[in-house]
């Protein structure tokens, strides 16, 4: 099965690979895994406390090309968005952008889970209650 050009591009030149300081209150960390294939993905965000805008996003993924591309794309998309805006990103958007085949859809789900987990961690650190909307839209 051939990967789409966009997947190959993200795989060869992943954006925003790296680590943010986990202990910082401005940083939210999401660590998620896909039991289907054993992939693990860590996505971190640094949120501006004044504006709630995600100013920095970093990821580190151990997995297949689609998982790396999905998380790379996810960091690109959430950068510059507010936390609430970032919650609106759906795995189906990632599937469409990267033309993922059905067997690789779980990679995009993993990326969506990672965004939510990172935001959830940041909210927990900063005492922000999960909004009802976010709760119901999560799966």
């Amino acid at each position: 099965m051939a990967y789409s050009d966009k997947v190959v591009d993200h795989y060869n030149n992943p954006r925003n690979v790296g680590t943010l300081d986990k202990s910082s209150t401005e940083v939210g960390t999401g660590l998620v895994g896909a039991p289907e294939c054993g992939d693990v993905m860590r996505l971190q965000i640094r949120v501006n406390p004044e504006t709630q805008v995600i100013e920095e996003a970093k990821f580190k993924t151990f997995g297949c090309g689609s998982a790396i591309a999905s998380s790379s794309l996810a960091t690109e998309w959430i950068k510059g968005r507010t936390v609430e805006d970032a919650m609106a990103i759906k795995n189906t958007d990632i599937v469409k952008e990267l033309s993922l085949p059905p067997v690789k859809i779980h990679c995009s789900v993993l990326a969506e889970d990672a965004i939510r987990a990172a935001i959830g961690d940041w909210k927990k650190k900063n005492g922000v209650a999960e909004t009802a909307a976010a709760e119901t839209s999560a799966h």
Binding site: G33, A34, E36, V103, H106, S108, H139
Partner: peptide, 18 residues
């Protein structure tokens, strides 16, 4: 629901990750 053809969204129990 086992195997790569099952995306996380289709899983009835998403809390399966150890």
């Amino acid at each position: 629901e086992i195997g790569e053809e099952h995306s996380g969204k289709d899983r009835k129990d998403p809390s399966r990750v150890p």
